[in-house]
Simulated scan of single mutants.
Amino acid sequence: MSVIEDRIYIGNVDYNATEEELREFFANTGVTSVEIPSKTLIRGKKEITRRLGFAFVSFESKEAADKAVEEFNDKQFKSRKIFVKKAVPPPTEEEKLKKSEEYKAKKAARQKEKAAKQAAAVANGDSSVETTAAAGETADLAVNGDQGAHDDKPSDAAATGKPSAPKKKKTRKPKKKVVAESDAASEPNSSDSAAATTPETAATTPGSAPKAPEGTPSPDTVFITNLHYQVRQRALISHFKELKPKWVHVPLRRVPYRNRKEGNKAPIYNKGIAFIKFPNHEVQQEAISKFNGHEIEGRAIVVEVAIDTKEKSEGANGTTEEESEVKGTENNAAASEVPASA
């Protein structure tokens, strides 16, 4: 391979390095020119110029370039170790075409070798490659043209003396999922469960109640669903004020960061659910019987017993995990939500 005797190539150059810094790095070595290639990117209305991480340096003579290769190869330049070698002239169009043809020839040879191995394995009864036989035949067709790997197989017309009928294309039919009647009766799907949560669907489908979550029913807290997305704590407090709830919690949806920026005020909605804690079990049951199906902002809410999903486990101080969870919920509600007495 021909090289440029008085020009060197420098790799692993720092992307922030400038031509002046590189010239100072090779000071007193007979440098005539320094070039750091770069490319320009357009991002909207901005043009960004980025260096490519390599450089070329030309010298006064071949001896100066050889000396630079020996002295500066594997040296530290701006926190990076650079590697230096003689520069190579850019390839001509003929050389590019030759390299492309060589690459295509090597690729075709690899595909032909792979197809031959698969055919030999199938002939030896290796079941692990039978599924890839079609891929090997495709590779043979790509290498050998239309004659392919099927030239040595006699056709049906040559064997029987009669013209062969055109083959019909096989079409695959989508498989239908078969659900057992017992499974369908015992495990309702998510759409049935979602439909059974509203009073309207509960009235029309009495036997399709959703599966309750695992846990312990709360003795004094109710869980509200189908809540209008703009209802807040104060609206629920006004509806349940006669039962004197201890606290009301309406979880809010998370607002994306892009909507929190100044000048972009997006509305904040709740998650369509709420929790209300009452003084005792009797008041809880009264709230369920009185307010289940009650309309708030045009939507009939569903009021049911809340489920404590965490199991009780006694701690070191004698309090159970459920009690500490309820206390923590009460403290959070008192700190971040609107109290029922407001």
Rank of each mutant, 00 (worst) to 15 (best):
V31D: 00
K75A: 04
A120S: 14
A133C: 13
K45F: 02
V31W: 00
D66N: 13
K86G: 03
K45A: 06
S61F: 07
A108K: 14
A87K: 02
F83W: 05
E35L: 05
E94I: 08
S61H: 04
E47G: 01
A108Y: 01
S128I: 03
F59W: 11
K112P: 00
E130Y: 08
V122Q: 08
V84W: 05
E47F: 04
P37R: 08
K106Q: 15
I82W: 00
Q111C: 01
Q118R: 04
E95F: 13
A133V: 14
K39Y: 13
P89S: 15
V57S: 03
Q76R: 13
N124T: 06
T132R: 11
K75E: 03
T92L: 06
T92G: 11
S100A: 15
G125F: 08
E70L: 12
T131K: 14
K114Y: 11
K98G: 02
K75H: 08
V122P: 06
S127C: 02
D66A: 09
S38A: 14
F26S: 04
I48W: 01
P91Q: 04
A123C: 11
V57H: 03
P91D: 03
G53F: 13
K99G: 10
D74L: 11
R51K: 15
E102M: 13
V34H: 07
P90L: 02
A55G: 07
V69Y: 02
S79L: 10
N124G: 06
T138H: 05
I36P: 03
F72R: 06
T132W: 01
L22D: 01
A87I: 03
E63I: 01
K96M: 10
F26G: 03
K62A: 09
T40N: 14
F59D: 00
F77R: 11
E93A: 12
Y103H: 07
R110I: 02
E24R: 15
K45I: 05
E24Q: 15
E102Y: 00
A135H: 00
K114H: 10
E60P: 00
I48Q: 09
S128R: 15
V88N: 03
L141S: 10
F72K: 09
K117Q: 09
A64H: 12
K62V: 10
Q111F: 04
R80I: 01
S33A: 14
I48N: 07
A68Y: 02
K75N: 05
K62G: 06
P90D: 07
L22C: 08
A139D: 15
A142V: 00
P90Y: 07
K96W: 05
R43S: 12
L22T: 05
R50A: 07
Q118I: 10
S127Y: 04
S100C: 04
A109N: 11
S100W: 00
